[in-house]
Simulated scan of single mutants.
Amino acid sequence: MTETYFESEDFTKIDFSKTKINKGEYDNCTFTDCNFENVHASNIQFVECEFITCNFSNAVVDNSAFKEVSFINCKMIGVKFNECDPFLLQFTFKECQLSFSSFYQLKIPSTKFVNCNLQEVDFTEATVTNAVFDNSDLKGTIFDRTNLEKSDFRTAFNFNINPESNRLKGAKFSKENILGLLTEYKIVVE
């Protein structure tokens, strides 16, 4: 099977649940208002691409590569990013709905989550150093043996991070949200 190569193309309002996405490499492409819900988007290379107002909910991204990819205002519920190609993996999320997604054991340093809903997301054993969780909701998010060193949680909220089972050296928190580090101890702060 020949791999297809797309460069600097715009894909707008395509429903990939009805129109099959071509396997191959997408370089510097923009996807706007596209639907990837429940789509098998496996073994695809996305390099320096931008996804705007797309629906990726429950998409299968097995062995797909996301290299310098931006997601803006996307719905990405239940995406198992831990199944994608980890080589040169780098993405940013702005105003995205990522609930129930998984980053299990991924190395995603310097990832930015800006105004995102990260409820019930799994970061178990992930390396999320130098990350930014700007104004993001982390209710029920799992941090277990996660390396969060030098990450910025100053404007994040609803998180519960156990300092004894996660690496937090140099991580930033605000006075307003520091209680998220104390929940495990069941103490009362008034």
Rank of each mutant, 00 (worst) to 15 (best):
M1V: 12
T4W: 11
T4E: 15
E7Q: 15
S8C: 12
S8W: 04
D10C: 10
K13H: 14
I14W: 09
D15Q: 08
K18H: 03
K20I: 12
I21G: 02
K23E: 12
E25F: 00
D27L: 12
D27A: 06
C29H: 06
C29F: 03
F31P: 00
T32A: 08
N38A: 06
A41Y: 06
S42C: 15
I44S: 06
V47H: 09
E48Q: 15
C49R: 05
E50G: 06
E50Y: 11
E50Q: 14
I52Y: 13
T53M: 11
T53Y: 13
F56A: 05
F56L: 12
S57W: 00
N58H: 11
V60S: 15
D62L: 14
N63T: 14
A65G: 09
K67F: 14
V69A: 07
S70R: 13
S70L: 10
S70H: 04
C74Q: 00
K75E: 13
K75M: 11
M76H: 00
I77E: 11
G78S: 05
V79A: 00
V79I: 09
F81R: 00
F81Y: 09
F81W: 11
F81N: 02
N82E: 08
P86A: 14
P86Q: 05
L88I: 11
L89K: 02
T92Q: 11
F93A: 14
F93M: 14
E95W: 05
E95N: 14
Q97Y: 12
L98I: 03
S99I: 00
F100G: 02
F100R: 08
F100E: 09
S101G: 07
S101I: 04
S101M: 03
S101D: 10
S102Y: 03
S102V: 03
Y104N: 07
Y104C: 10
L106S: 11
L106E: 06
K107P: 03
P109G: 06
S110D: 12
T111G: 11
T111Y: 04
K112F: 02
K112P: 02
K112T: 08
F113T: 01
V114S: 10
V114Y: 09
C116V: 04
N117Q: 13
L118M: 10
E120F: 15
E120N: 13
T124M: 08
T124Y: 07
E125A: 12
A126D: 04
T127Y: 05
V128T: 13
V128P: 03
T129Y: 02
F133D: 06
D134P: 00
L138D: 02
G140M: 04
T141Y: 02
F143C: 06
D144F: 10
N147E: 05
N147H: 02
N147V: 04
E149Y: 00
E149G: 07
D152A: 03
R154H: 09
R154D: 06
A156Q: 07
A156T: 09
F157H: 10
N158D: 13
N160R: 13
N160H: 15
N160A: 15
N162H: 10
P163N: 02
P163S: 01
E164V: 14
S165Q: 09
S165W: 07
R167F: 04
R167G: 08
G170Y: 03
A171I: 01
A171Q: 03
S174N: 09
L179I: 07
G180R: 08
L181G: 08
L181I: 11
L181S: 10
L182P: 00
T183K: 15
E184W: 05
Y185D: 12
Y185V: 05
I187K: 12
V188H: 11
V189P: 00
V189L: 15
E190A: 13
E190C: 09
